[in-house]
Deep mutational scan, measured.
Amino acid sequence: RIRTTFTSAQLKELERVFAETHYPDIYTREELALKIDLTEARVQVWFQNRRAKFRK
């Protein structure tokens, strides 16, 4: 699998949801994935990585 490059619009939306909750449920992730045209798996991994970055 190649590395996913996020558009600024996708990042803006991901960060907006992250500001609300660091642990979005499956429904939130799936809805977000559809909205920004990514797979739910990519959204899930983005949140994992974002939480790791947040803890640092």
Rank of each mutant, 00 (worst) to 15 (best):
E20A: 07
F18Q: 01
A41V: 08
T21P: 03
E20L: 11
T5M: 13
A9I: 10
Q10P: 02
T28C: 08
V17P: 01
Y23Q: 03
Q44C: 11
T7K: 06
E40L: 06
Q44E: 11
D37V: 06
V45K: 13
F54P: 09
E13Q: 06
E20I: 10
R55W: 13
V45G: 11
F18V: 00
I2R: 10
K35T: 07
L32T: 05
R1A: 13
A33K: 01
Y23V: 03
I26N: 06
Y23T: 05
R3L: 12
E30Q: 12
A9W: 09
F6Q: 02
A9Y: 06
T5I: 06
L11N: 08
A33V: 03
R50V: 00
Q10A: 05
S8T: 07
K35C: 07
A52G: 08
A33R: 06
V45T: 13
V45D: 14
F6D: 03
A41W: 08
A9Q: 12
A9P: 07
R29G: 01
R1K: 09
R50M: 08
V43S: 01
R55T: 13
Q44K: 13
F18C: 04
R50N: 00
E30C: 13
D25T: 08
S8L: 07
T28P: 04
H22Q: 15
E30N: 10
R29A: 03
K12Y: 08
Q10V: 02
H22M: 11
E30W: 06
E31A: 15
P24G: 01
R29Q: 04
R3Y: 10
D25Q: 02
D37R: 08
K53I: 14
Q44R: 13
A52T: 09
L32N: 00
T28L: 12
V43Q: 00
S8N: 08
N49M: 09
F18R: 06
R29V: 12
F6W: 08
Y27K: 15
E13M: 04
Y23I: 01
T28H: 07
V43K: 05
K12S: 12
L38P: 04
T5K: 11
I26E: 13
R29K: 01
I26H: 12
I26M: 08
E40Y: 05
A19R: 09
F18P: 01
W46F: 02
H22E: 09
D25E: 04
T28M: 07
I36P: 04
K12Q: 12
P24Y: 01
L32Q: 04
T28K: 14
R3V: 12
H22L: 03
H22I: 02
R1N: 11
L34S: 13
H22R: 10
A52H: 14
R50H: 00
R3K: 15
E13N: 03
T21K: 01
A52E: 13
A19F: 06
I2S: 13
V17L: 11
R29H: 00
E40G: 05
K56Q: 04
L14N: 01
E20C: 07
R55Q: 13
H22S: 04
E15F: 01
E13P: 00
R42A: 15
Y27H: 15
R51W: 03
D25K: 00
E40S: 06
L11S: 07
R42G: 12
K12D: 08
A9T: 09
L11T: 12
V17D: 05
R51C: 01
E15R: 02
L11M: 07
E15D: 05
S8H: 09
L32D: 02
T5F: 08
A19P: 02
R51D: 07
D37A: 08
D37Q: 09
L11W: 08
T28N: 01
L14S: 02
R3C: 12
T39V: 05
P24E: 01
V45F: 11
Q10W: 03
Q10S: 03
E15W: 03
Y23D: 10
Y27F: 12
K53C: 07
Y27T: 15
L38S: 15
L34P: 01
V17F: 01
A9C: 06
L34Y: 10
F6K: 03
E31Q: 14
V17Y: 00
R29D: 00
K12R: 13
D37W: 03
L34D: 13
I26Q: 13
L38T: 14
K12A: 13
W46S: 01
S8Q: 08
R55I: 10
R55M: 13
R42Q: 15
W46R: 04
K12C: 07
D37N: 15
F18G: 03
T39K: 07
R3T: 14
L11Q: 09
T21L: 05
L11Y: 03
T7D: 05
P24F: 02
T39Y: 02
R51I: 02
A19Y: 03
I2D: 15
F18T: 02
L34Q: 12
K35S: 07
T39F: 01
F18A: 00
V43E: 00
E40P: 12
R1C: 13
K53H: 09
E40R: 03
R3N: 09
F47S: 04
V45W: 11
E15Y: 03
T39W: 02
T21Q: 08
V17K: 11
R42L: 14
L14W: 01
A19D: 12
A19N: 13
R50F: 00
S8G: 10
R55S: 14
P24C: 02
F47C: 03
W46G: 02
E13R: 05
V45N: 14
Q10N: 03
L11P: 06
E20Q: 13
V43C: 00
E31G: 07
A33L: 03
E31I: 12
T21N: 10
T28E: 09
T39H: 04
R29C: 08
Q48P: 01
P24H: 04
A41G: 09
I2H: 11
L32Y: 04
R3I: 13
N49W: 08
E31H: 09
R3W: 12
R51A: 05
